[in-house]
Design a binder for these strands. Structure first.
Lengths: 343, 343
DNA sequence: CCTGAGCATTACATCGTTGGAATCCCATTG
DNA sequence: CAATGGGATTCCAACGATGTAATGCTCAGG
């Protein structure tokens, strides 16, 4: 059986509370006593029971991280930073998948309470943050949202998706592209905040340059995966071929993952990138620089996101009434080999 | 403040224990009483405090999943299955990163005890399972290892890496390849169990076919990442070019991630795959079928791994003295476009 | 009308830890 | 030498849920 403070206390010849005092270090303990306790601690290989501690002071030391799709490379990179940085703060990360289902998000919040996490980092896909609206505010655990959300009063951390998309589109226009397709726009039942904002930035750049939007160049994959992106692009290419219409001269994918799918389809059809069509992405995942050709994309510091989210969460846990923070993470366009200059 | 069993009991006009009985459903409760309690439960939006429950019955409902590198696509896919399947069993997944440092693994085990997880799924990279050896068996939490491990008495789940590597090599030989480079072999300070076994399978196939091993075709990247693989391959190509030696006719990467790096380098040098060099991988990550060209690789059911690991863990938690299980997950070679038939 | 069986419910103790209040001890001071 | 102070330590209770043992209740049979 595992040693408890009582066992340690008995061995050291002190009371359990003194052991606790040594461990937590808030109440002063005489050096000689501390040594005795510490040696007993080591001798019995004492490990505190977090359930008991959590019960006593209401902290579990666990933070939930809920991402929409855990299997993407982007999620993986983000998760890694969260785990590493949470460690430094003495937290463990409990991983959850929110999917694209808003009910799932609600369930997660209640699960969060069940499993007693101290806080929740939520990366919602959907615009309507039903979770937050539905629940009584006081009933919610401390939450920080990754991504842009409408309702105020919620801590959030995000890149300026709209600006980044606008800049990327402007870059394509500046390099001579005129018919720019997007992959990951909003439409039908798929409406994500991120999607809407990136599309808005794209539209803004287009209209600022006096270019018309072509609805058929707005591809709406069923999921933000390489497979779905590939099938949408295939459909577009087929249509163009059948009707004898010209292909777009650039494809702006709202994630690098989808860009990978797009590049694959183009390569399979013998369409040269970037000579015939330029392709750009978003996120700068590790694989982006190893795409063929290396992918021009939007980079931002994922570790900074994790760090900001955890800081905000720590603050929120400490003070439930603190004013909501809205932290914007800087981004930049990294130029690689998937964009050509057209005359 | 959150409702407790006491509050519910007061509202329903019964004792706390009766509420507990209703919730857990082991002790029979009269229908009329149960209804009253259930309505009180709903009315107060009662959520059990897992810390308290955990303290009482020694279960936390948390499982730790420790993977060597969380940022890889492979980790992401595995993590997703674990999270989904753990949910079904009423567990939450606590994510940990083991890195390639054995000390880190030891630390994880003690952290596991600190954070009071019910069990630990460990994917060690290193052969020497120091963790298990160092600790007193009775002190260890229930552990299941993903991957091949030498010491007996530990539950493990894995694919037959050696056989798969042998079959893949045989396939390359059968299609006419004679000089097969490997990326991810063991050497220097990097010695992982997986690496050793895959290399062994490769060697076996080679010698069975009467082919000589060429030491310079054994590439040992510093990490199993696309970047490291790319830099090793670049070095090899440079050497061949400088010395006027022939290139290998196939490259067997021990992970798909590394294959992505290899494909990128080859494309960058204008070396056509598979016409001049065939490339194969291992893992069948989602991106593999979207590589350029689509990657021939070893596929296995990652969900089956997660399922088997969780089942084994559940069994182990239930009975610490159960005989250790060793579950082998089936694999197959998926043929895509990165291998050519040579005459 | 009483007794006993059998089921439903309650009272109590307990899991391990730690705040808060009370107590103890030693040293300093009058 | 006694009183005082303050730092160190101890005692007690409580966090919330649940196992155990005891109690209460209802109903059948004598």
């Amino acid at each position: 059986m595992r040693a408890t403070v009582r066992d340690v206390a008995k061995l050291a010849g002190v009371s359990p509370k003194t052991v606790s005092n040594v461990i937590n270090g808030v109440v002063p303990v005489r050096a000689e006593t501390r040594e005795r306790v510490e040696s007993a601690l080591a001798q019995l290989d004492y490990v505190p029971n977090m359930s008991a501690r959590g019960l006593r002071n209401g902290r579990s030391g666990n933070i939930a991280l809920a991402l929409p799709d855990l299997s993407t490379a982007y999620s993986a990179e983000l998760a890694r930073h969260f785990v590493e940085l949470a460690h430094e703060r003495g937290w463990a990360i409990q991983l959850e998948q929110s999917g694209n289902d808003p009910r799932r998000e609600v369930e997660l919040v209640s699960r969060a309470r069940t499993h007693l996490v101290d806080g929740l980092v939520l990366n919602p896909t959907l615009l309507s943050m039903s979770v937050v609206a539905d629940h009584d505010e006081s009933e919610l655990p401390p939450i920080v949202v990754i991504g842009e959300v409408e309702p105020d009063g919620i801590d959030q951390v995000h890149v300026d998706s709209e600006l980044a998309a606008r800049q990327m589109t402007e870059h394509l226009i500046a390099t001579g592209h005129r018919r720019i397709a997007i992959v990951g726009g909003s439409g039908g039942r798929f409406r994500s905040a991120t999607s809407l904002l990136r599309q808005r930035g794209y539209s803004a750049a287009l209209s600022a340059a006096g270019l018309a939007e072509e609805p058929e160049l707005n591809l709406v994959p069923t999921a933000w995966t390489p497979a779905a992106a590939a099938s949408e692009l295939t459909a577009l290419l087929d249509t163009c071929e059948r009707d004898g219409r010209a292909l777009p001269d650039a494809v702006f994918c709202f994630t690098d993952s989808m860009a990978l799918g797009v590049l694959h389809v183009l390569a399979g059809r013998g369409i040269r990138v970037p000579d015939e069509i330029s392709v750009v992405g978003f996120d700068d995942i590790d694989e982006a620089s190893f795409a063929i050709p290396a992918l021009t994309t939007v980079r931002f510091d994922k570790r900074a996101i994790a760090d900001a989210a955890l800081s905000a969460l720590a603050r929120r846990i400490g003070d439930a009434d603190a004013p909501a923070s809205d932290i914007v993470i800087a981004h930049e366009i990294v130029h690689r080999d998937s964009v050509a200059r057209r005359l």
